[in-house]
Design a protein around this nucleic acid. Structure first.
Length: 259
DNA sequence: ATGCCCTATCGCATAGGA
């Protein structure tokens, strides 16, 4: 079973690539982030023609998550029970579903903007709400994973130049402690292999030739419970999908699971 | 080392991304 996560930076702008990639990669379950569309705009029909069902949580131009599956899509759970919201509004950043033998949760963690910004406190609060929401599945016997754009680089090895991130979000002790607490529910970081170079980066800024220079970050993560981690046969970052015109700034992370 | 920001919006700049 092939499971993947991909921040597509607009499902509308990325649709031709997403459809071609699904067909070419043979992915069974795809967790999407930053769909940047309304519920009505989500391309359910185009995906259905390829044999995929979609569970969508989206409300407009920002954020938006989905689970796309051709092996079943049941017990859909949008949002987080304890979501703190931002500026008085709850944002579409999490959705869970059961796809055959596996349960997945697609997440788009808030960016945080700057340390000390209200969005940064929101990011930490949201991660705590995520921890509460996944604790039961994480401790369970069924294979389960939280996949998505965490907007946190777990270690200094996960950014291309640590010195450039001094005082910035994505690398702080608080953010990393929040990830550690999340792992404390019983989840393991399924680190993918890079298809090139030494680090499995998943994001490269559009600007300043970051991708050709491999100035990237590993911020798209797969956190699996014990049953999930035990089934991992392979995991890799499909950097080919970051190339060329019309690419997202994130590459898909792919996991092959024996279940 | 496959290319020098991109996306969405009642746009004619701006917010957000990280």
């Amino acid at each position: 079973m092939r499971i993947a996560t991909w921040n597509v930076n607009s499902i509308t702008a990325r649709l031709p690539r997403v459809l071609a990639w699904l067909e070419g990669s043979g992915t069974d379950v795809l967790c999407l982030q930053e769909t940047k569309c309304t519920d009505e705009q989500f391309p359910r029909e185009a995906l259905r023609e390829l044999g995929y069902d979609s569970a969508v949580l989206a409300d407009g131009r920002w954020n938006g998550v989905a689970v796309v599956s051709r092996v079943g899509l049941d017990d859909v759970a949008p949002g987080l029970p304890a979501d703190p919201g931002y500026d008085g509004r709850t944002e579409p950043r999490a959705i869970a579903a059961t796809c055959g033998p596996v349960r997945v949760r697609s997440v788009y963690v808030p960016n945080g903007r700057e340390v000390g910004h209200p969005h940064y406190a929101y990011k930490l609060g949201w991660l705590e709400a995520l921890r509460e929401a996944v604790a039961e599945d994480a401790a369970g016997e069924r294979p389960f994973a939280v996949l998505g754009d965490y907007n946190v680089a777990p270690t200094d090895e996960d950014v291309w130049d640590r010195s450039l991130f001094e005082g910035a979000t994505h690398v702080t002790g608080e953010e990393r402690a929040a990830l550690a607490a999340l792992r404390g529910t019983g989840l393991t970081d399924v680190v993918p292999r890079p298809l090139k170079y030494d680090h499995p980066y998943t994001y490269w800024d559009y600007r300043q030739l970051c991708f050709p220079k491999n100035r990237g970050m590993r911020i798209d993560l797969v956190y699996g419970n014990a049953a999930f981690a035990a089934g991992v046969a392979d995991a890799y970052v499909d950097r080919e999908e970051r190339k060329g015109k019309g690419a997202s700034d994130h590459a898909p992370v792919v996991v092959d699971l024996d279940v």
